[in-house]
Design a protein around this nucleic acid. Structure first.
Lengths: 345, 345
DNA sequence: CTGAAAGCGCTTACAG
DNA sequence: CTGAAAGCGCTTACAG
């Protein structure tokens, strides 16, 4: 049997011997309904296994209970963690989430979805200012919140980590421990996160009269393979670096792989530091020193601001910046060590 | 400015000096419209920056262009990879996806969403037969496809890997290489994938007169920490195993961590094998031998079957099973090796 | 407390 | 080829 035929509030009305309007009232939880009628309606609804059509409701109320989420590639575990948090927090607020990524033109698709009433609002976790459509939509007051990455030129709610301070902490840490040949592995400077980490890192180095030699700067795709290739080429230099800062954990994990493959002991010969503190960074086989982003907090703030804005479209845009912590682990441990590990020869 | 006021087809009609019905026709791409009128409408739509209201359209057509996806916890990277594939394949078909996980009662929520017309159909990547609601909905012909995990007792489209054969391949491999104290790390037998991997593995062992000693069986939560704890306790045995099969990669990666922490050389003293072949299994720092699931293929089949069923609700349910491959890597390499790696002491 | 009616913004027979 | 009209399934003033 495939009973895809809709049962409607009219069917319930007939069975409960009331008007369709009353069915709607009861099921909306309205106050002013007699107990007797309420019971009849509830029982009829249960008997017919009725679910109100959310589309019809949404068309009247202009709230559909769905928010959009735009992330970058899920192959970056940071975005998986953001998505997981969004999923949890949204569920707590009774919201469903629909997902896009920035590869398949997700940004524009998300804005379209707002205009088409398919979603109530959108959380951008990977905004850039490349898309004029996006910029225009945000500027015109679409219910949008940016988390993780920010866009200066636009006035909307934005929640981020203090990426500048994070980069600065890494530089301080390198300086304190006498690292001198310092490399930086990053990519295009499109994302605010990357630009700020870079600025914080380089500013502090410069303050100490240090810098990243141009031969030690790598701009690669933001993938594991990108980090791996960058590190390989750094380790092939006659004067290889003694510390490498990677602009995110995915790059850093790729760099660890390269060091492992090329038998460069980490941290004995070279330190590696990432950014984000994704879950696997704390696995003991990887044990990556990194800057922790408070992902859950970013997401909670983001969804709160979005719901807030839906109720109050005119309120001023808020900017929130959260502090970050340096998590020191094995990839920069200072004591010497030797440890056997599996490897295919 | 916050122009959240909808522009409708009536507005376009007024500007283009045609009826609202004609606007709808043009925008639906109907054939029988004169070029002259078509152009007027298209230009008016563009001028007013018009997007048709997808809800209203969906209410008439009973197709909203959204499919639901239910996964288990995204902390298992397999589900991230499934989700990524669903996202890509769905985008290619012009579909949006809405996401649930099985923690927050996502299964029931997904079924509700079908009944409420919020989604056209649902892909379950982590079905179990625990939920009567789910079972009933599927049995009654709701547009649902199961991928990855299957449920025997229910008649609907199902796409899976040959988990039984995968488990058997691991057993064969262990036997060929004279592994004798064989451990098995798994969890509750709720999921079909787990049950079948287990059955295939144990059957082949039994055929050779081997078995998993009860002291070498561990049932733990399906998390990295679960795998880690299981492996720790195995390595504390006076007669520790020389090969460990973990029911999925996340467990196996946790087991690798435990071996690393307890300085048990892998594979010299003990082999570790996982299941799924998630992306990081091939990272050289982890280099996990595992059984590869053809994730992309599962997803492509799943979405194809779902779209197919929407067009043809009455057709017979299909069952598809895909073959799997054993990917041999460093966690079972046979040659001795010694390698230094970073570690915090 | 309850019902009749309007309307959310579309699509699609039905006429012409 | 185009328009007038009905209707998808709800919510919500407006009467009574």
């Amino acid at each position: 049997m495939k009973s895809r035929s809709q049962i409607t509030s009219h069917d319930i009305a007939k069975v409960a011997k009331v008007s369709q309007a009353t069915v709607s009232r009861v099921l909306r939880g309205a106050e002013n309904v007699s107990d007797e009628v309420r019971i009849r309606v509830v029982e009829a609804a249960r008997a017919l296994n009725y679910s109100p059509n959310a589309l019809a409701r949404a068309m009247r109320t202009s709230r559909i209970g769905v928010i959009g989420v735009v992330v970058a590639r899920l192959s970056n575990p940071l975005y998986t963690e953001i998505l997981r948090a969004v999923n949890e927090v949204a569920a707590d607020s009774g919201l469903r989430i629909v997902l896009w990524d920035t590869e398949g033109a997700g940004e524009v698709a998300a804005i379209d979805a707002i205009r088409q009433s398919l979603v109530d609002g959108v959380i951008f976790a990977a905004a850039t200012h490349t898309s004029p459509v996006l910029k225009e939509a945000i500027a015109s007051g679409a219910p949008v919140v940016l988390i993780n990455r920010t866009v200066d030129s636009v006035e909307c709610d934005q929640v981020s980590s203090d990426n500048f301070a994070g980069g600065a902490k890494v530089a301080d840490y390198f300086i304190q421990h006498m690292r001198r040949r310092i490399a930086f592995v990053s990519g295009v400077r499109e994302a605010s996160t990357i630009r700020e980490r870079e600025a914080g890192f380089l500013d502090v180095l410069a303050r100490e009269g240090l810098s990243v030699d141009s031969s030690l700067l790598r701009r690669v795709p933001f993938t594991h393979e990108g980090g791996r290739m960058a590190m390989r080429s750094l380790l092939e230099l006659s004067d290889a670096p003694d510390a490498v800062f990677c602009a995110n954990d995915l790059l850093a994990l790729g760099a660890l792989d390269a060091a492992f493959e090329m038998r460069c002991p980490v941290p004995d010969k070279c330190w590696i530091v990432g950014f984000d503190d994704v879950e696997m960074a704390s696995w003991s086989t990887l044990s990556l020193t990194t800057v922790r982003q408070p992902v859950r907090t970013l997401v909670e703030d983001g969804i709160r601001l979005l719901l807030d804005r839906l109720d109050n479209p005119a309120r001023e845009a808020e900017q929130i910046v959260h502090p970050v912590d340096l998590m020191i682990r094995g990839s920069t441990g200072r004591k010497p060590y030797v440890h056997e590990s599996r490897r295919q020869l």
